[in-house]
Nucleic acid binder design. Structure first.
Length: 448
DNA sequence: AACAAGGCCAACCGCCTCTGA
DNA sequence: CTCAGAGGCGGTTGGCCTTGT
């Protein structure tokens, strides 16, 4: 706390960037790449703070940055992702190729929050504005407004966030009841907060997958606390909490997402001429080995999640609660795998026992030989499959569907084997098979 | 035409986590 | 284990632009 600014402000330019500065920065990064922002200004001959350079590059100068003209589909996606993720603009931006967190944040604050308000929804909570007087609404001591569940300060206890979201009344999101689907035990469990394998957090404290999943599953309205906020695990709820949770689970399934097309089409990158593999891969009945395309992944260069695609063949009746629920699961699954791919280092840590090479990041993924995904017959799995396929198309990875998992497939568990075989062209000297099993047990994501 | 008010958005600020020494 | 640096994030600011009077 109270740390000095990243650089002395004395003698540094501030305010809008000039074309000359832009040119210097772009030229320097083109020659030397990103990174070492503190040293960059001096090296590039800029009288700017390193952070300022980074921001200018990330938000404006970086290639492939789309500016303006946010479509209605993108608006829908932002709204949905905001409902899922809260004010985590960077996470939202990571799922919208070409868009920056700053732009999305600005767009939200200037357009979408008003749009939601005009629909009678609280932009922070996505709750109906008139529902405040509901007996179930959070009327904790003092002003409830400033303690809106979705805007608690960063670093709050996730458990508290979870408990807070319990109170949300999302019933008016529903166009109808879905109690039948909620009565289904398996489905209901999907809404429950996940347990997280502690092993994942051996190195990083960030309970990334778990908390994100917990928050996602807790409610369509997410707390806006930072991911790496605090304690990782506590699945022991009091009786009252259990009841509240049960209520929330039911409410959760009533949430209406934007139309599938608007959501999932946007997961895919803009139509690329040579992306035909995704369509074929979506057909799980005809397992196909996806060839390595080995195209440079610009999205990874940008630090974004590999864009996920979905099957355009899926026709989902938006008024069908059953399908809505599946879609919700899809979103969660996609989020899971998305985050899984994003947290490459975590995977290495989690699989440290298995992957013995002292390599990290891209090296690890370069060494991935193939991904096996058994039984991708359901909608959720096939979208998961598509995500993996898309990922594979941007890396030197083969994706091979397999109906014969070497691991037991229990009811409700979708095991995914991420097997690492060192390809011949890898710098890794290891040729041993390293495998990490990722079990999707409802909302539980376990690295075993 | 002039001014005020509000909107928009690039840039800044402060805090956080991660990482390596 | 501690500490400091680096990078990253979300909230906020302030100047420019547009619209209304």
């Amino acid at each position: 706390m109270g740390r000095a600014p990243c650089c002395s402000k004395v003698g540094l330019n501030r305010g809008p960037w000039t074309p000359e500065e832009d040119m210097l920065l772009t030229k320097h990064i083109e020659q030397h790449g990103e990174g070492n922002w503190r040293a960059l200004p001096k090296a590039a001959g800029l009288l700017r703070c390193g952070k300022s350079c980074r921001l200018r590059w990330v938000n404006y100068l970086r290639p492939n940055v789309k500016r303006g003209n946010i479509s209605e589909d993108e608006e829908d996606l932002i709204i949905m992702l905001h409902a899922l993720l809260g004010n985590r603009w960077s996470l939202i931006a990571a799922r919208m190729p070409g868009r920056t967190d700053n732009e999305i944040k600005n767009y939200w604050n200037t357009h979408l929050s008003k749009k939601l308000a005009s629909r009678g929804l609280d932009p922070k909570t996505h709750k109906p504005l008139v529902a405040k007087s509901s007996p179930n609404s959070p009327t904790k001591k003092g002003d409830g407004d400033s303690n809106s569940p979705s805007c608690h300060s960063r670093g709050d206890d996730p458990q508290e966030a979870w408990e807070t979201t319990m109170d949300l009344d999302t019933s008016s999101y529903s166009t109808g009841s879905c109690e039948e689907s909620c009565d289904d035990r398996d489905r209901r469990t999907e809404c429950q907060p996940p347990k997280v394998c502690a092993r994942l957090h051996r190195k990083r404290k960030m309970p990334v997958l778990g908390d994100l999943a917990k928050e996602k599953s807790a409610s369509p309205v997410l707390s806006a606390g930072k991911i790496g906020g605090g304690a990782t695990e506590s699945s022991s709820l009091s009786v009252g909490q259990e009841e509240e949770r049960e209520q929330d689970l039911q409410n959760t399934t009533k949430f209406n997402y934007p139309s599938p097309s608007s959501v999932f089409n946007l997961y895919s990158p803009s139509p690329s001429p040579s992306n035909s593999h995704s369509a074929s891969a979506s057909n799980c009945d005809s397992p196909t080995t996806i060839s390595k395309s080995n195209t440079a992944s610009s999205s990874q260069d940008l630090g974004q999640a590999p864009p996920l695609v979905s099957t355009s063949q899926h026709t989902v009746d938006w008024n069908d609660h059953e399908q809505q629920f599946q879609l919700r699961s899809q979103v969660q699954m996609l989020e899971f795998i998305d985050d899984f791919l994003l947290r490459k280092d975590d995977v290495i840590v989690a699989g440290g026992d298995l992957f013995k090479e002292d390599c990290s990041g891209d090296q690890f993924w370069d060494s991935l030989g193939k991904i096996e995904l058994p039984d991708c017959s359901s909608v959720c799995q096939s979208d998961l499959w598509d995500g993996l396929t898309e990922f594979a198309s941007n890396s030197t990875t083969q994706v091979v569907p397999s109906s014969s998992s070497p691991l037991p497939v229990a009811d409700g568990i979708l095991p995914m084997i991420i097997a690492s075989t060192s390809p011949s062209n890898s710098s890794s000297s290891s040729s041993s098979l390293a495998a990490t099993q990722v079990n999707f047990l409802h909302d539980e994501l376990l690295f075993c």
